[in-house]
């Protein structure tokens, strides 16, 4: 009898503790917490340090770099690499411009195409909804592959060495459409569409004046997906771009890199010519500075990216 009341009182005490301290009651012990924190802190450092290291190298003095190699605490600092980019790095700045241009044009076209297509798929009374859903499903399952795309883009559409070869292949994809369609479905009530129709609004007005303003967070998510995709793209440039005036930043980094490879591979056989080539090569610090300036915009936009990416991830996970 007394045992039962004891356990009952114990139970009540527990309930009260939970109610008073909320989730605090159900927490891990302090030492465990410290252990977890140390582990997570080390992992976090491993994730950010490589990029910080690149920043440090880019502001190291070129001579102390040649003497000591890459160091976390350089002997001497210098902003020479950045001064060089601003004053003499014509092709670097042009590449920066190309990347910005491609990103802006691509994101705008991509948003328009994704937005219109996804919206029609979200409308329940659209008679061809099934058909157009199939149109985007098949490419997710079976694709022509790299060679087929290359042949069509270069030999049929004749886009090689034009800016459109960098813009068009990336502007639309099934995944973005599905994410945005789900967003339209969950954030725009049928009642809004119906009442607008009853008021006599045309489909155009409905889409551009009512739906788009309501769907801005979803469009922002897709916009950021697209922006990141364009900014970081080097593959399309590698496939389709030989035009020296239209080299985006990421591809410029590859080109500088592979000429270094060439130097390393041909060290033994290289004569005077090789040395001349080597003298004209961008220096280590300048290369690292290009890496930094090409990533800086992403770092600045990082808070937005993170927020909307998480949104997009969770929205995209909801099906139908």
């Amino acid at each position: 009898m007394s045992e039962k009341t004891m356990s009952k009182r114990k139970m009540e005490k527990r309930i009260r503790a939970i109610e008073e301290e909320g989730c605090k009651y159900n927490q891990i012990k302090k030492p465990t917490n410290v252990l977890f924190n140390i582990f997570l802190a080390i992992l976090s450092l491993i994730c950010v340090i490589p990029f910080i290291f690149v920043i440090i190298i880019s502001i190291t003095d070129e001579e102390s770099l040649t003497m000591n190699g890459y160091r976390f605490i350089p002997e001497k600092l210098s902003l020479y690499a950045y001064e060089y980019i601003v004053s003499a790095g014509e092709n670097i700045l042009r590449s920066y411009g190309v990347t910005i241009l491609v990103t802006i044009i691509g994101t705008l076209i991509g948003l328009l195409l994704t937005g219109t297509y996804a919206y029609t798929l979200s409308r329940k009374n659209y008679a061809y909804r099934k058909f157009f859903t199939t149109v985007i499903t098949i490419p997710m399952l079976f694709s022509g592959g790299m060679i087929a795309n290359y042949l069509i883009v270069t030999k049929v559409m004749m886009l090689k060495d034009t800016i459109w070869a960098l813009v068009l292949p990336l502007c639309l994809n099934s995944f973005n459409i599905i994410v945005l369609r789900t967003f339209f479905k969950t954030s725009i009530p049928d009642a809004v569409v119906e009442s607008a129709k009853i008021d006599g609004a045309s489909e155009w007005r409905l889409f551009f004046q009512i739906v788009i303003p309501m769907a801005l967070p979803g469009l922002a998510t897709i916009g950021l997906f697209l922006t990141l995709g364009y900014w970081n793209d080097w593959f399309n440039a590698m496939m389709y771009m030989d035009n020296k005036d239209l080299i985006p930043l990421q591809y410029l980094l590859i080109q500088i890199e592979s000429s270094i490879d060439w130097l390393a591979n041909n060290k033994a056989t290289m004569g005077v010519d090789g040395i001349a080539v080597a003298a004209n090569m961008p220096k280590e610090t300048i290369k690292m500075a290009i890496v930094v300036i090409s990533t800086l915009p992403i770092i600045f936009a990082y808070p937005f990216f993170q927020r909307y990416f998480v949104n997009g991830l969770t929205v995209g996970a909801v099906k139908e």
Partner: peptide, 26 residues
């Protein structure tokens, strides 16, 4: 469905060129 059909056209054309035409490349 005319208006909605026109809205889905730009995307459909893109898929025709960048997803279905390459199937000939096979």
């Amino acid at each position: 469905n005319k208006e909605l059909l026109i809205l889905s056209m730009p995307g459909a054309v893109w898929f025709l060129f960048f997803a279905y035409l390459p199937l000939f490349g096979i």
